[in-house]
Design a protein around this nucleic acid. Sequence first.
DNA 1: ATGTGTTTGTTGATATATCGCACAGGCCCG
DNA 2: CGGGCCTGTGCGATATATCAACAAACACAT
Lengths: 253, 253
Amino acid sequence: MTITERDIMGGLAKGLAVIETFGADRPRQSISEVALASGLDRATARRCLLTLVHQGFAEWDGKFFTLTPRVLRLGTACLASMPMPAIVQPALDALSDRIGESSSVSILDGGEIVYVARAAQRKVMSISLMPGSRLPAYCTSMGRVMLAALPEAEARARLGTRALPARTPLTLTEPGTILAELARIRTDGFALIDQEVELGLRSVAVPLVNARGQVVAALNLGLAAGPESLAAMAARLVPELRAVAAGLRGLLR
Amino acid sequence: MTITERDIMGGLAKGLAVIETFGADRPRQSISEVALASGLDRATARRCLLTLVHQGFAEWDGKFFTLTPRVLRLGTACLASMPMPAIVQPALDALSDRIGESSSVSILDGGEIVYVARAAQRKVMSISLMPGSRLPAYCTSMGRVMLAALPEAEARARLGTRALPARTPLTLTEPGTILAELARIRTDGFALIDQEVELGLRSVAVPLVNARGQVVAALNLGLAAGPESLAAMAARLVPELRAVAAGLRGLLR
DNA sequence: ATGTGTTTGTTGATATATCGCACAGGCCCG
DNA sequence: CGGGCCTGTGCGATATATCAACAAACACAT
């Protein structure tokens, strides 16, 4: 069965769009502001807002509308029971399909990353990764993104003081060098790895943040090393990763 | 201006009701189940659901519907837009560190409390709480503090007239008993709960007031039940809570 | 103050979309 | 086969969207 034009309720779609116009940057809006932000007619926006007030999803002081905590209840009960893998998997699959490369989400556990979800395209790595797999944080893009989000002292502690194993000739092994790279990652907002885990493998990662803005996981794309420059690779893939990360913003705990 | 009958959009109200039928206990529903749970006609429920799918708020495998994480964003923006979390978090962290126990701030929504911010120390509860989590007001310390701040009739209305579920053998279930406890809370200025929400868990809460003196939230400390008497616990923790509440006085809206 | 131009909230009229009902077809199971 | 349960779909009555018009509030220069 496919969804036809007549199966769509305009009123509901418009109302949801109205709710979505409320954001951190615009918690209080007048009718006209909502109409402008949603593209609806003022009269329609007004009816949507008054309906939300009547149903207890919004409040109105006669001029400005504010969402109530009741909006939070929409769907939260259902999704609270859903673990992180279930939440990120759809986005991961879509990203992986669009780019045609493998994509993963992992969390940091001590000095290691733990794969939480993965959408694999083709095998470029000799080792097979799956949820639960672990890799060292210091030489992976996701690991570095999450280390960069820690306080400097904490990152230093997790890296240790001595040289780390060189998994390939390109692996950064000196804690000092890696800390410098973490500083770059903090300002750029992404990590890029060139064949440090395994020869022939590159990867790019960005952080995933929860509702409080804390980095709780990382999202990456892994690809075979090719003729493309690292800068071009970053320019091509980082926006894609950021778009997915923005869509997941606040959805993880 | 008052809201008249013609200002209400039935379609939007019905669609929101459809979303609310999805809960932790029923994350996957068919058209008929939703129709039954919402009281809507099957054809209407179907149109609502297909609209939600079309807008990306739900998924459909041809038989069952599931909400997508996008629904969470509806409320997340609202939560983020509330300055309250950002304002209380530092104080919460400091308090939690000093006492060595978990501390939270919540607001009242109907008969439930909604966690707005939380500083967790160690896990003493079986359920994990995070911003957006909900618990019933009648059996929680923060809930009772906020119920006590309401006019008597309003509190009575939110409690209902029948016995409430006993989450543990210690839970107060009779509305009359709880109303008496609310009276005590009004005179004492704090609420104390002994294993009413979960065995082994105690908590103390005080109200947080805005610049106009209205109670807008509650602050609590939760700890594992130990040999310490309830009175000693109150004497030790209530001054700490009051100090934090005084520091936040008038900062919330 | 006064006037002017702009923006905002509100209200009607009418074309359009949606609701709720009834019915048809599919699926499962005894 | 027949009964129960489900989903999908026309159809008339009803509700809603859209657009325009209007009054009130506002900004601001006169």
